[in-house]
Design a protein around this nucleic acid. Structure first.
Length: 484
DNA sequence: CTATGTAAACAAC
DNA sequence: GTTGTTTACATAG
């Protein structure tokens, strides 16, 4: 159990640890701390109503609540690390009693009164993880960060996390960060080159300012007449079912589980190494591979399961996907069927595609080809941002500047101290690299793309073809013809 | 119902 | 062990 959740748990903390952060407080922090003390006294009510728990935190919360708008830094300074080592999360099981089912843990995430009182959604302030991550990325000189760099940013800029940077304590919030990165369409992962290197994370240039839907939501949205609750329900146990089926040897190419749709924002920068190439369907056999999953998600699922084949038609993809001028009007029926392509296409549209054995990319100009359809779900996608060293997408706009975000601590505003020359400067460097392997600009059809239309992968073509036809026939007996 | 936070299962590396 | 993805669940609005 990491402390991160402490504030949310029902636990009893014997003593407030008010002074705790003092040692870590920075100059501004200390001032905040002092103000906190005063605030606490000023708003006893809130503190009084605080439930047992991180009482100290409650006090602080009350204090901050009574004062003027607090900066994140102040909040951080104010946050009180509940002693770690508490054992939480044990409440569960009670309700499980007797069931044959393994005890399922239940989380108790009740927001402490203090937080309620101060209207602070989180112990560190108002920003959500995704907000903070976005800020971290925006503040990066290159506009991109690796996971561990994001972690570091959190630690460096937010006291709350800094105070919980021990391996044990950080596990929780790091998990949350990863979760948020994967979940929000707002972020995009760029496969880093080189084996064993973690990916770069960048802000999805097409992400709308402010909040962006979680991928899960996108997914659920795509499911007509399906409520999230229903969706969740239906998803429940999907994996187990899959496993079960797999064990039973009933895994047909279509299976896959996929109860999941996947992320649509990850991009493989390095495509696959020759040795890592594998049949497009390999990943569909049982479970997606980590890297492949990023690109193949929705597709896999819908492709395989006749019952789900229509579920993702309405997926919303980043505008850059479809707005690309290069993408001409496409017959509605075709569009409907190929919307999914835009998943990867978007970002990919106009991107260079590395020449690899597995050409899976999309073609920016012509309507999606049959191959492209397949590629939509393909695992390898060149980072769109890399294709063109200059401007990745039509709608790309400079990152929002610092400003709005109060300093997390020290009163220093990371954005003010960090130059943000261009949207994603870092991408440029990548672009250069990419350019070395590229011979075409967005205006020309890269060889790779041309390859796309070549039957160089009979196996895949055939499989896909059969698969799609099968799906379609299952879905409604309609047949769709794709011009190749 | 949506958004968010948190925990955790899993898989790939 | 780290990185990523996904599922599940809790809570607040």
């Amino acid at each position: 159990m990491h402390p991160h959740q402490l504030p949310h748990m029902h636990h009893t903390l014997p003593q407030p640890l008010l002074n705790l952060n003092m040692t870590t407080l920075t100059s501004s922090g200390s001032s905040v701390a002092s103000s906190i003390g005063g605030g606490a006294q000023g708003s006893p009510g809130a503190a009084a109503t605080a439930q047992p728990g991180c009482s100290s935190s409650n006090v602080i919360a009350a204090a901050t609540a009574s004062s003027q708008p607090q900066t994140v830094g102040q909040m951080l300074a104010a946050s009180v690390p509940c002693s770690s080592g508490m054992t939480l999360g044990m409440s569960l099981n009670l309700s499980q009693g007797g069931g044959p089912m393994p005890a399922k843990k239940k989380r108790c995430r009740k927001k402490p009164t203090d937080q309620l009182a101060q209207k602070k959604p989180n112990p560190w302030g108002e920003e959500s993880y995704s907000d903070i991550i976005a800020k971290a990325l925006e503040s990066a000189p290159d506009g991109r960060l690796k996971l561990n760099e994001i972690y570091q940013w959190f630690s460096d800029n937010i006291l709350y996390f800094r105070e919980r940077s021990s391996q044990e304590e950080a596990a929780g919030w790091k998990n949350s960060i990863r979760h948020n990165l994967s979940l929000h369409s707002r972020f995009m992962r760029i496969q880093n080159e080189g084996a064993g290197k973690s990916s770069w994370w960048v802000i999805n240039p097409e992400a709308k300012p402010g909040r962006n839907p979680r991928r899960t939501r996108e997914r659920s949205n795509t499911i007509e007449a399906t409520t999230k609750a229903a969706l969740d329900k239906s998803r429940r146990g999907a994996k187990k079912r899959i496993e079960k089926r797999a064990l039973m040897g009933s895994v047909h190419s279509g299976l896959n589980g996929n109860s999941t749709a996947g992320s649509i924002t990850s991009i493989q920068h390095d495509m696959y190494d020759d040795d890592s190439m594998q049949s497009p369907f390999d990943s569909m056999t049982a479970f997606r591979s980590r890297t492949q999953s990023t690109m193949s998600v929705p597709g896999n699922t819908s492709r395989v399961s006749p019952t789900n084949c229509e579920l993702y038609d309405d997926l919303e993809f980043p505008s850059w996907v479809g707005d690309t001028p290069a993408v001409p009007n496409i017959p509605n029926d075709l569009v409907d069927r190929t919307d999914q392509m835009r998943i990867d296409n978007g970002p990919l549209a106009g991107l260079q595609i590395k020449q690899e054995p597995k050409p899976i990319k999309t073609e920016p100009i012509a309507p999606p080809s049959y191959h492209e359809l397949n590629s939509v779900r393909g695992p390898c996608v060149q980072n769109p941002l890399l294709r063109n060293p200059i401007v990745p997408s039509t709608n790309f706009k400079p990152m929002p500047l610092p400003g709005a975000f109060g300093g997390y601590q020290n009163g220093a505003n990371p954005w003010l101290t960090t130059s943000v020359p261009s949207p994603l400067p870092g991408i440029q460097s990548c672009g250069i690299v990419a350019a070395q392997n590229t011979l075409a600009s967005s205006s020309a059809l890269p060889i790779d793309l041309e390859n796309l239309t070549l039957p160089d992968q009979p196996l895949m073509d055939m499989d896909v073809d059969a698969l799609i036809r099968h799906e379609l026939s299952q879905a409604g007996g309609q047949s769709i013809h794709f011009d190749l």
